[in-house]
Amino acid sequence: MLIKIAHNYYYMVAILLFIIGMHTMLTHSNLIKKVIAMNIMDTAVFLLFVAVGYTYGGAAPIVTAPANEVLYVNPLPGSLMLTGIVVAVSITAYALSLIVKIYRFYGTVDYDEICLIRSQE
């Protein structure tokens, strides 16, 4: 069991990252930290994907290399994750711009303080 886990350590890292992200998301009241946590979660999934595509001893799949190289790294997960990163970036950007606007209303990005302000109104 342990050996299995050790062999698949990158899955474990990915899951660990995912849990870290989720935990941050749940426990931190700062909105920006929440966005960061979201990114950590996304990154965990990206890592998992890229790790899935990786082949031991494989080379980058570029056509210019001489043709006797047999093992290639699967390029698909990598390129998909590039798209995933783009998506994550756009979500982050949008979330940050929303936070800026929320800041404009409350003067804080801390969630607890926002609740406090709202409850006093």
């Binding site: 909105l31 929440k34 979201m38 996304d42 979500i91 949008y94 979330a95 936070i99 929320i102």
Partner: peptide, 10 residues
């Protein structure tokens, strides 16, 4: 929309 964004991102 912030809430929606975070939840749908999750």
């Amino acid at each position: 929309s912030f809430k929606y964004l975070i939840l749908s991102a999750m």
